[in-house]
Design a protein around this nucleic acid. Sequence first.
DNA 1: CGGCGTCTTGAAACCGTTTTCATAAATATA
DNA 2: TATATTTATGAAAACGGTTTCAAGACGCCG
Lengths: 335, 335
Amino acid sequence: MNPKKITIQDIADCANVSKSTVSRVLNNTTPVNDKKREAVLKAVKDLDFEPNSLASGLAGGNSMIIGVQTQKIGSPFYDLVTRGVIHCLTDTRYSPILVDGVWDKEIELKGIDTLLRRQIDGLIIIGGDIEKEQLLHLAAKKPLLLVGREVEGLQDRCLYVDNFDIGYQATKFLIELGHRQIVHITGIKSHQDSVRRLNGYLHALEEAKIPYDADLVYEGAFDGPSGVKAIDTVISRGKKFTAVFAANDMSAFGARLALYRHGIDVPDEVSLIGIDDQTEAPYMTPPMTSVRQPAFQMGVAAGNAMLDLLMNKEFELPKPSVQISVRESTAKVEK
Amino acid sequence: MNPKKITIQDIADCANVSKSTVSRVLNNTTPVNDKKREAVLKAVKDLDFEPNSLASGLAGGNSMIIGVQTQKIGSPFYDLVTRGVIHCLTDTRYSPILVDGVWDKEIELKGIDTLLRRQIDGLIIIGGDIEKEQLLHLAAKKPLLLVGREVEGLQDRCLYVDNFDIGYQATKFLIELGHRQIVHITGIKSHQDSVRRLNGYLHALEEAKIPYDADLVYEGAFDGPSGVKAIDTVISRGKKFTAVFAANDMSAFGARLALYRHGIDVPDEVSLIGIDDQTEAPYMTPPMTSVRQPAFQMGVAAGNAMLDLLMNKEFELPKPSVQISVRESTAKVEK
DNA sequence: CGGCGTCTTGAAACCGTTTTCATAAATATA
DNA sequence: TATATTTATGAAAACGGTTTCAAGACGCCG
């Protein structure tokens, strides 16, 4: 299976120079006589030489690998960020290694360990539950960037959207359309994000002097089935409502289906807004209004920031702004 | 940033044994005196030692990395396969490195090169356009698995669904519901898959003695906008049709939206079937019928097969079966 | 023409492991 | 009890690069 590996030594022999010179030519680290340089280059071509990254990583001290930890592979938002990172790293000399933390502190730490063993040059953690102290400790030994988290003491390393604001804006948007009975389907309550979005919702209600009704809030799980269940439950509670704000698009899709089942028209009877602005949102019937998070761009930004960080360049993480993609699932409330 | 790396030598010193013994303890490769073993283990704990994978990869000859090449990160099917692979590798000693080939022969080869440089122990290529000869050549030097491709000479290394059959089954399903004017929105025509699905469609028509009408076929691009355009186009051609078979769910979603815009009821006036059975399909209104490809499971299967392959165990790739998730976007044709 | 700084180059040390090899100790065999 | 095996262990040689170091070649100046 392995015919025989060509090493830098073979090139050296073939080009009648020393290993050192070959290395120098390959990395452009020191000027080399043109004739020798070309001899080396020719030998590289002729022998079809591929440098061994493990060896150069070991010798040079940098693996050219960036560790990326995501959560529950398959979640629209986190996947999209991850894709952004990977996309950004393509065409650089760095490669990403992915680990999934599945929102479980212990597994996350194990994953980080794996990455550290692999001598990653930098680490991008997307979401997750790892404690502040551990992150600080980690940041002390590896270039670290956090996406979708806000950690005290690491502000300049955090790239996140203001989830409170997302919840607030979405709710306010509905209120301004005249809605006052607004169902909120929350995310998984152990996630910071869910709580912040809920708080944003509460704040918007308060600001509009709309009394809070616990029966209108349902604890979902960021997925379709919980969206369905949410609507079924609220209806079975005998509650009237004219709008639904779901903590992400998947649960909004679930809600959409449940409303359809109950023969409730969207948006004539009930308005519906989600979060994420997934690719599919514009293709719902009617096209669904959603709060857009620039997830992919955030991934790219994190990737670029990491590259800068690794080159000791100044960098600044953008503060992504939240926009509502207004479509046809939301409408003014009928009087 | 790097206080001081603990190496195997430090452990050896601390435990009063040689490096060799430490290595042996760590890898359980040779029996070691219990006392020494424990001394080593204690030292590892005390000093918080993390072995350097680059070094062990170099010395031991296996990097414990599996290269995964996917195409156009963000495509539902390919992403899902990739996720399956990654999921399967979690909790093994292997880590995945991802590269995106973006369906471009040259970029794909460059990506493979990167992976080879990194001394991957195995390679899983999902989709892509790399020529048969190159793949054979590749398979000769690295354990190789192909997902979503069928390559002569590497049959036992290929995991794919029969795309002809998918096209055939989907079309036949519609025909059996009584449809005879069936629009087909194809995928990107340079992809093998698209052509096979189209051929399956043609075959089903032929079998049912339905004359082929080129005006009912629209070349799409596996995405939402092309689905919309397809319907608009066919309608503008003045064509009557009672069913639409889209080459994937995203284009089916586009078609769904276009039908909605044109005030055409699904499924009363037009039936709609897609391929992929994306997470979102059951939440369309009405829930969409789709041909299910077990993409995630295929990824897992590929991962497992790779693990077997690496341990020189026998393995067999499943021949994934195609099922139609029948929902409410398809109905018997009205007489 | 001798001395000095610069530039190019090869030899050798190093990166942190694994693995081979030889040796010393322990056990089994005769 | 002497000899043949087996076992545990350390020293040293890989693995395939990068980087330090010193030396040789070269040009420049006085």
